[in-house]
Each structure stands twice: as structure tokens, then as C-alpha cells.
């Protein structure tokens, strides 16, 4: 690969927003971790996704005979990649996912392959919801969903303790109501 640029303009390798290079400002991680139980939650969800994908291919294999010769490899690949995904990503997520709310903003860090640091000001919040899927209910977890007037601006914090999420939702709703502005 040809190095077309002059050396001074070359960006530093491995620069994360939390470690962009000496002398620069950096983002700090949000203050709170999510619950440890969230590992189980992510694993269950990943497992279901993999099972659905493998199940569809398996059904094809069972019912469409001409497809059998070339379906074996994809099924094996899906199962292998799926097993790795289910085994590894929940732990990676647990080390990455963090959240924080202040009186001015909601701040989160999420993602396993693509990490995302996301902040939304309280003054722009339109709704604060908690969301509990079947697995989350089983584990006593909840997702806090904070939406702003933007179609793309929702901050979602999954894997919180249900009671914590509930308290946080109430607190944010209260602060939001005290903050004037039409949120756009």
C-alpha cells in the first residue's frame, strides 16, 4: 500500500476515542456497568438468532433434496460462527457496555464490533421508556430507551436491573418535564 501522505498528517494507529493519542482530549468511559446477568441475556438472544438461522437452513436441508449437496458447508459454517458468536460476544459486550446519566445528558458506550459512544442532552428528550423482552423478564433486566425528536437519535441502554431502569426512567422523565423547550 503506497503511503501517499506526508508523515505529519498520518493518523495514529489504534487510536480509540478513549485513547486518541498523547496530548489530545479523550472520552472517558461512562460511570456505570450494566448488570452481570446481561451476559446471560445476550447469550440467550444470540443463541436464538443462531438457532433461527441454522433452523431455516436445516429445514431447507430436510425438505429440499436437490439442495443437499451444497447446503452442508453453509450449515456447518453458520453453526460454527454462531457458536463462537454466542460464546464470545456477550463477554465482549459486558466489558464494553456502560452508561451514565447526569442532570444534563444521557451517555452510553455500546457495541462489540462497532463501538459507539453516544450522548443525548436531557433538554431534547421526548420520551423515556423501559422495555422488557421475555428473556429480560426472566433475568429481571430491562432496557432503558431514551428518544429525542430525531428519528435516529434514540439512546438504548440494555441489560439494566429492572428496578434501576424504572427509577432512572422516572428520574429522567421528571428532569425532562422541568426543562423547557420544544425538543427540536
Amino acid at each position: 500500500m503506497a503511503e501517499v501522505q506526508d508523515a505529519a498528517a498520518r493518523p495514529r494507529r489504534y487510536a480509540s476515542p478513549e485513547d486518541p493519542g498523547a496530548g489530545a482530549v479523550r472520552l472517558r468511559p461512562p460511570a456505570n456497568r450494566v448488570e452481570r446477568r446481561a451476559i446471560g441475556w445476550w447469550a440467550l438472544r444470540a443463541g436464538v438468532q443462531v438457532a433461527v438461522a441454522a433452523g431455516l437452513l436445516g429445514a431447507l436441508y430436510a425438505f429440499v433434496e436437490p439442495a443437499r449437496p451444497w447446503l452442508g458447508a453453509p450449515i456447518t459454517a453458520v453453526l460454527a460462527a454462531g457458536a463462537a458468536y454466542t460464546a464470545v460476544t456477550p463477554w465482549v459486550r459486558y466489558s464494553v457496555h456502560r452508561w451514565e446519566t447526569t442532570d444534563e445528558a444521557v451517555y452510553s458506550r455500546t457495541g462489540w464490533w462497532v463501538r459507539e459512544w453516544r450522548a443525548a442532552p436531557i433538554s431534547r428528550i421526548q420520551t423515556v421508556d423501559t422495555l422488557r423482552g421475555p428473556f429480560a423478564q426472566m433475568l429481571g433486566l430491562a432496557t432503558l430507551v431514551v428518544t429525542t425528536a430525531s428519528a435516529r437519535g434514540a439512546v438504548r441502554i440494555g441489560g439494566l436491573d429492572a428496578a434501576v431502569a424504572e427509577t432512572e426512567a422516572k428520574r429522567l422523565t421528571r428532569i425532562t418535564q422541568q426543562t423547557p423547550g420544544d425538543q427540536t
Binding site: A15, P17, V114, R115, E116, R118, A120, V155, Q183, T184
Partner: peptide, 12 residues
Amino acid sequence: SGVSVRQSILQR
């Protein structure tokens, strides 16, 4: 009304 910084492993 919100800011995010994203980085995939390749981007990093």
C-alpha cells in the same frame, strides 16, 4: 439533539 462517535475494530 445527540452526538455519537462510532468506531469499528478495523477503523480503530
